[in-house]
Amino acid sequence: MNTIGLYALIEYEVSKLWRVWIQILVTPWISALLYILIFGQIVGRRIGEISGVSYIDFVVPGLLMMNVMQSAFSHTSSSLYFRRFVKNIEELLAAPLSYMEMVAGFVTGGIIRGLVVAAGVYAVAFLFTATSVAHIFLFIFYSVSVALIFSLLGLLIGLWSENFEQLAIPQTFVIMPLTFLGGLFNSIHMLPEKFQWFVKINPFFYFVDGLRYSMIGISESNRTLGFVLIFALVFGLGFLVWYLFKKGYKIRT
C-alpha cells in the first residue's frame, strides 16, 4: 500500500478547504445561522414543542445532517470534475496509487469537509440552544457514514458530469428536495397520514432521523432499517465507484 501517497492525496483534498474558505466554510455557517434564527427562534416559538423537545432542538440535528450531506457531496463532485476538466486526473493516474487509494483519498477529503462544516453549524447552534448529544458513538456513526455515502455519490456525479450544469443538477433537484422532505423541519406526524409513506421511502429521512436520535433521543423511523440502508449504500456505492475507477470510466482514455 502507498500510505505516503494516500496521505498526500488526503492532504491535498483538505488543503482545498482553505483556498476558498469563505465559500466552503463561512457560507454554510451563515446559512445555518439564518435557519436557526428564523425557524428555531422566530417560527419555532409559535410551534412550541415536538415530542417533548423545543422546536429548535428538533431542527438542529436536521441542519447538521443537511450540511454534512451537501458539503461532502460538493467536495468530491467538484474536486473530481475539476481534475477531469483540466486533465489533472492524469497526475493521479500516472502515480503509483491504486484505484482504491484514489477513491479513499477523495472520500476522506469529502468526509473531513462535511464534518468541519457540521462542527461549525453545531457551534452556531450552541449560541441559541443547549445542543446535546445523547449517544456519542451513534452521533459519530451517523455523521461519518452519511458523509461517506455523499462523498461516494459526489464521486459518481464527478465522473458522470460533462459540464458544470450537470454537476449542479443533483444538488438542486435531488439532494435539497429530499433533505427538506426527509423530516428536516417537521415531524412525520405533522403530515397527513396519506403522505407519510412518501417520507418513509425517502432514504434521507433515515439519515436525519438517525442523527436526531443520537442527539436528542427522539426517533420516528425504523432505525434497524436505517442501519441496513446505510451499510447497503456504503458498500454498494463504494463498490460501484471503485469499479468505475478501475474501468477508467471517463478518466482514462
Partner: peptide, 27 residues
C-alpha cells in the same frame, strides 16, 4: 512524465504542486 498540455491544478502554487506530487510517488 511531462505531458504536452498543462494538466495541472492551475490554482495551486508550484511548491504545493511539487509537494503533493512528490507525496503521490511515496517520497
Amino acid at each position: 512524465i511531462s505531458p504536452q498540455e498543462f494538466n495541472i491544478d492551475i490554482f495551486a502554487k508550484p511548491k504545493e504542486i511539487l509537494y503533493f506530487v512528490g507525496g503521490f510517488f511515496g517520497l
